[in-house]
Simulated assay, not measured.
Amino acid sequence: MTAFSRISKWFFYLILLPATIGVCGWQGWAWWSWASAPVASEQEVSPTADGTVQLQIPPGSTAQEIGENLKAIGLIRSTTAWNLWTRWETLRDRNGSFQAGTYEISPTEALSDIAGKIWSGSIVERSFTIPEGWSIREMAIYFENQGFFSAEEFVAATEQIPTEAFPWLSPDLPHLEGFLYPDTYKVAEDTSPTAIVNQMLARFEQVALPIYEQGQAQTPYSFLEWVTLASIVEKETVIDDERPEIAGVFARRLRDGIPLGADPTVEYALGIRQTEDQPLTFAQVRIPSPYNTYINAGLPPTPIASPGVSSLEVSLEPPDTDYLYFVARYDGTHVFSRTLAEHEAAQAAIHDGRSAQSESRSETTN
């Protein structure tokens, strides 16, 4: 054995000896079990439905502060035992540390299990799902209804453009509409609107950005135009098989300088959603707005919703089509037409069919 090895060996014993003596001096594992067991707390604790306690560890909390909080709410008996575990874990994992966040802890958990949970960062998480085609307004209402935070807080967060973290975002954007990728996410229980926005932007960067980078040389659209077109295609498409044809119609209209005439852009401008019983009126589609694609040629200034990957892909280089028009049947499908005369005939047929169905329902109820 070399001199260095002997020194290293004795140095290890000097570190381990105090901990070993301490455990033995405290009457071994029987004492450790007593120190780990929970006790009644003098503080008021709000347990969850299954009896567990939610504990908030603020950022920057020291190991001693965490131990004192655990003892105060009755989850451990001894801060001395806690400090011993902390010293040993620090020696074993020098790169590790206790993690901030919200934790669910059962009163029956042992001290070592509680410490391990906080050391590894096993925080309370919850999930949320944003469907393709949702706007920021719809997301904001959803988060408020789910108890995350207020709709106003979320909208305010989306009006901050984090170009330092995501340099592909234009600093001139008024908001992040279209760039919050629709998906299912897991977040900390006490997450903030900004954290969620950044998580969704990171997902867009991961999924959507490579699509544009790979096809940028072939597409006629700028990055913003591409996402904007994809958002309109997303809102218009119900049946997936029709997505390429819808994108093709819009692409042809853009090339020919014909207004897109997309209902979802008017709905976005007015903050409404039309239904079969309450379709957009002629007066509504004549209301001036930068987003009204009935009276303005070209694309609106920003996306109108969050497109999914299918709409993003098909909008990068839309297929050629003979069609210039389409009209919804209100069953998810559309009638595509080559000429204005065909389009007007299709509109009339759909209108007559809806009127006949309405009369039939009226006669049945009477």
Results as ranks from 00 to 15, higher is better:
261 G>Y: 01
315 S>Q: 08
187 V>M: 08
70 L>P: 10
301 P>F: 14
89 E>M: 13
157 A>W: 05
305 A>F: 01
91 L>F: 14
297 A>H: 09
102 T>C: 11
26 W>L: 15
288 P>S: 15
173 L>F: 13
240 D>W: 00
157 A>G: 08
209 L>K: 12
311 S>K: 07
27 Q>V: 10
150 S>L: 04
154 F>G: 13
364 T>H: 04
72 A>W: 06
110 A>D: 10
309 V>A: 05
25 G>S: 15
184 T>A: 07
95 N>S: 14
223 F>E: 02
45 V>K: 09
6 R>C: 11
189 E>N: 09
341 A>L: 13
273 R>W: 03
4 F>G: 01
362 S>A: 10
238 V>F: 11
352 D>G: 08
24 C>P: 00
208 A>D: 06
56 Q>T: 09
232 I>N: 02
309 V>W: 01
168 W>S: 15
78 S>C: 12
64 Q>D: 14
326 F>R: 11
56 Q>V: 12
160 Q>G: 01
186 K>D: 03
109 E>Y: 01
187 V>N: 02
279 P>V: 09
17 L>R: 03
337 S>C: 05
61 S>K: 03
298 G>S: 08
326 F>I: 14
134 W>D: 04
285 V>N: 00
331 D>W: 03
355 S>C: 10
96 G>M: 13
155 V>Y: 13
35 A>V: 04
62 T>H: 07
203 R>G: 07
199 Q>S: 13
151 A>H: 02
50 D>K: 06
230 A>M: 10
183 D>V: 04
54 Q>R: 12
291 Y>W: 15
86 T>F: 13
343 H>P: 04
228 T>V: 09
294 Y>H: 02
358 S>Q: 12
159 E>D: 05
211 I>G: 02
158 T>Q: 11
83 N>Y: 01
318 P>E: 02
305 A>I: 07
78 S>H: 07
334 H>C: 04
219 T>F: 12
330 Y>V: 11
334 H>L: 05
180 L>F: 07
324 L>Q: 05
92 R>E: 10
86 T>C: 14
79 T>M: 02
67 G>M: 09
69 N>Q: 11
308 G>L: 13
270 L>P: 07
234 E>Q: 15
190 D>P: 00
48 T>M: 10
362 S>K: 06
293 T>E: 02
183 D>L: 10
114 I>Y: 02
185 Y>C: 08
159 E>H: 06
330 Y>Q: 14
278 Q>P: 09
124 V>W: 02
198 N>T: 04
284 Q>I: 02
34 W>A: 09
216 Q>M: 09
113 D>N: 09
286 R>M: 10
366 N>F: 14
146 Q>S: 13
102 T>Y: 10
185 Y>T: 13
71 K>M: 08
300 P>Y: 07
110 A>Y: 11
275 T>S: 14
262 A>I: 00
270 L>R: 03
255 R>I: 06
36 S>M: 10
121 G>N: 06
295 I>W: 00
317 E>I: 14
159 E>S: 06
109 E>G: 00
69 N>Y: 01
170 S>L: 06
316 L>K: 01
359 E>C: 01
314 V>I: 09
336 F>S: 08
133 G>Y: 00
345 A>F: 00
